[in-house]
């Protein structure tokens, strides 16, 4: 056993330097040079201000914006420094209470069919996307809040539905942040 002492220590130190320091640092340098946008988190800015990341969902509460899915990340949801799902099991009372409340809210807005993603929390709490069905539900509310024809909102939404990768991998989806930025760009910002 004692004869293994020297190789054990030497190897751990050597590989720590190689795979723990050299590999990530060199890779960071190359990444920052080659694809700085992705390497820094795909940030989006508007008028010189960073408004978020294209990959990370954020809270939208106002009626004039498309809302994301319920989120369990952090205290208020969409805390991008504390990703988390709800971890409610399928027979959890707390799950049912949360879903009931959200279903009721959507019904008040006139929804007939409630898409599953509209009332369920994502795994990361930071899901940037919603299903086209959930987005479609919200068009009327947004049009009313912004005092524009629903057709105009629907047109912007249709342009933002992303197809599955190569046509069959993954699901069709709508990036909520990009869509809301497009709303502001086309219909004027603020939206009461």
């Amino acid at each position: 056993m004692l004869s293994h002492f020297r190789p054990a220590i030497t190897m751990v130190l050597f590989f720590t330097l190689l795979t723990g320091i050299l590999y990530p640092l060199a890779f960071t340098a190359v990444a920052q040079f080659a694809v700085p946008s992705q390497a820094n988190g795909s940030l989006i800015s508007r008028n010189g201000i960073t408004v978020g990341s294209a990959l990370i969902g954020q809270n939208f509460m106002r009626d004039g914006y498309f809302h994301g899915r319920p989120s369990a990340a952090g205290q208020k949801g969409y805390d991008a420094s504390a990703s988390s799902g709800s971890n409610y099991g399928p027979t959890s009372k707390m799950l049912l209470e949360r879903v009931d409340a959200d279903v009721e809210k959507l019904r008040k807005e006139g929804a007939a069919i409630i898409p599953a993603d509209a009332v369920t929390a994502s795994a990361s709490g930071l899901d940037p996307d919603i299903s086209p069905a959930f987005a479609g539900l919200q068009v009327e509310r947004i049009a009313a809040a912004r005092h524009v024809a629903a057709e105009r909102v629907r047109k912007i939404l249709d342009k933002h539905i992303e197809k599955p990768f190569l046509g069959f991998i993954g699901e069709p989806r709508v990036n909520v942040l990009k869509l809301n930025l497009a709303l502001d760009a086309n219909l004027g910002s603020g939206a009461g």
Partner: peptide, 24 residues
């Protein structure tokens, strides 16, 4: 989840609690 279906959620999407949209 039949409990959620009973609460009015469309089951066509399957169980979406704890899942992300983009993966399917």
């Amino acid at each position: 989840n039949p409990i959620l279906a009973h609460a009015g959620v469309d089951v066509a999407g399957g169980n979406m609690e704890g899942k992300e949209i983009r993966f399917g």
